[in-house]
Design a protein around this nucleic acid. Structure first.
Lengths: 231, 231
DNA sequence: ACAAACCTTACACTTCATTTGCAAAGTCCT
DNA sequence: AGGACTTTGCAAATGAAGTGTAAGGTTTGT
């Protein structure tokens, strides 16, 4: 997949550490900008051009908590706080004010990246942010984790729901077995692993039953599957 | 005077300053009591016999913020914080935790009195600030930390109240276990941590009992929970 | 010191993911 | 076309994971 890099904003007064982190994030495929003061941080965070903010709560000339609050008043951009090791108060207050996660300093860059990814992967924070997928009479609401055909709920398991979401997002594209294995099961596909086939089979039956045979999971032999809806 | 004087509680370890303030307030027609330690402050504030509390956030042997939180968990008596001149953190945290106003030290007694009067004049403090959540006959007032079904108070513990608030704010969205662990317990969820489940279970029983089975915490298997109200 | 609140543990119970086995369908080759 | 091989569909079996809640231990606030 070559999606454009995600923009990350770093707000931390320690220029050296920030620089190192920025380089690391760069290597992980993120596009970073670092600022070192509160006013810069405020302006940048509110510009709306970042996909996530990593925010040190200890900032000179003002408190990161204030900034956190300011941002949350306006935007739902994901925020990860950097907190002192043992400062429970900061942590609790930060989460209360809407931070999405925290990482204690000093941190391992890989851990930070993992949490960053987790936060970015999370369904949009506000229900109104309209993550509604549709295809014919099929509707899927990611935040509510609800899927239905013509208003009638489909009773799907977690895996089936995720599978349907991936297929739906794929649009006309064929979702390959390898891709599905990675995104659905979170592991590389081994030979003789029939797990995906079974999930496809189960989902297929539910979809066809609910839609009166009008919604199909079409097989593309040797490649994968694709959703198709009959007129 | 024909109206009884309003009772004001002062919590501050500086006996001299407190004494002066008490005399000043006396002259303005308030009845004061001053205490100088955290335990005394707690007991007095929770006794319910004061109309307002003036609370120094810097107290020996414990943090005024803690006391603030304790008081707010039980009572919505107006609270004015005394903070160090430049300490924004204390201010933000204090207001967030439900203080009604703050005054930076050193202060002018007349200013303090003005704010005190303003705070006492305001009966429905947070009601207008839209911190009133509803869902069917369920009502939750975050500022007063009061929740009820059709006017009847639910007797919730602190954790249960917070849990309900989070679920309620989530709206139709499913609140995930990870999210709840972060927001509710202020820590990440470890494997085999069943704490959340237990709180859900307890809250669920109280809600269903009070609502006559009309308010449910619906389980979304493998993901989390969502509030649902039957028509 | 006491009680309330909270956390942990344990266990019964449900539901689901994965494995397995085999049949059916598709592909390739001669 | 027909046989050999590969891939897919699916039912059934199995074991792992998720859930609800009672009970007991620990912490915390008063």
């Amino acid at each position: 997949m070559d999606t454009p890099a995600l923009n990350i904003l770093l707000v931390d007064d320690d220029a050296t550490l920030t620089q190192m982190l920025a380089e690391y994030l760069d290597g992980e495929g993120f596009a970073c900008r670092a600022v070192h003061t509160l006013p810069e941080g405020r302006e940048a965070a509110l510009s709306g051009q970042y996909d996530a903010v990593i925010l040190d709560v200890m900032l000179p000339g003002g408190n990161g908590i204030d900034l956190l609050r300011t941002i949350r008043g306006i935007s739902d951009v994901p925020i990860i706080m950097l907190t002192a090791k043992s400062n429970d108060t900061e942590r609790v207050i930060g989460l209360e004010l809407g931070a999405d996660d925290y990482v204690a300093k000093p941190y391992f860059p890989p851990e930070l990246v993992a949490r960053l990814r987790a936060v970015l992967r999370r369904p949009a924070r506000r229900a109104s942010s309209g993550d509604h997928l549709r295809l014919g009479a099929l509707a899927l609401d990611a935040a509510r984790r609800w899927a239905g055909w013509g208003g009638m709920a489909l009773e799907l398991t977690v895996t089936e729901f995720n599978l349907l979401e991936i297929l739906l997002r794929g649009g006309e594209r064929v979702s390959t077995k390898d891709e599905l294995s990675l995104r659905l099961l979170g592991r590389r596909r081994e030979s003789y692993d029939r797990s995906i086939d079974v999930h496809i089979s189960n989902l297929r039956q539910k979809l066809e039953r609910a839609s009166g045979e009008r919604l199909h999971i079409a097989t593309v032999r040797g490649i994968g599957w694709r959703l198709e809806v009959a007129p």
